[in-house]
Amino acid sequence: MPGQDGERLYVATSLADALAALAERGRTASVLAGATWTMRAPLRHEPQDLSYVAISKIDELRRVEVLNHEISIGACVTHAELANALAFLPECSALVQAAGNSANPAIRNVATIGGNLCASAFAAADLVPALICLDAELEIARPDGSERLTVERFLEIRSDIEPGRLVRRVIVPRTKRRSAHIRLPLRKAGDYPVASVSLAATLGPTGIVESARLAVGSVEPVARRWPLLEAGLVGRALDPRHAAEQAERLCGDFSGRDGIEAPGWYRVKVLPSLVRRAVLALQEQS
């Protein structure tokens, strides 16, 4: 029975089991997925929560289902699995690039999409802006059912989610679009990005951008869309230079976070270049 053994880690075997274990433990328990963020709590000098309910062994949370109208990604799908599962879908390039280049290979083998979304103190998460640009939603399971909300909405409320709930899956709608995720690590790879830009756009028959969603990660504490720039991209053909010029003009929309690895001004200053590269990447997809 959940919670009976007094252990600090309960490994749930099904979603119902996990929800029951969480309900029983109330505020003393947290959800544990890939554990890569939680296991570093001692280095951040954070007290570790009293106990954890692990959900990574729950089969349904580990599945990626590609349906006609949407893609359903279980919360415990790892970055590596995600990059692999969607590699054949050009419309999901942003997500594939984000999942396939984050951190390093051994971390990608363990870190999950659910964990990436829930680690609210992790500003540099790669998947978050990619999911925002793909207009993704997620489903939260609770003891009495489930609710669906957009990733953007989730980011607003994630710190205040009631105990006993967990992210069950992420849903990415399928549309005919191009997308790209451009990340800027300080080394060639192996770092978290100091800034990232995720862009998705649908093009009309003549190559005119009909709709665009662009999200910026790591620049501010939480990834978010760049609505003014999106508006500037719509109604014209993909034009990397023009996009970069607009980004340059609109950079004041962002207030970069100062970090040990990079000052805030730098994160903002590189945005036009990342935007240019993202638009170029879309241009090169056909």
Binding site: L9, A54, S56
Partner: peptide, 19 residues
């Protein structure tokens, strides 16, 4: 600390033994 867990490389410092 890289080891293979069910064939995949992982950082064994970040894997709780319970998992």
């Amino acid at each position: 600390c890289t080891v293979l867990l069910d064939g995949r490389s992982v950082m064994s410092c970040l894997v709780p033994v319970g998992l």
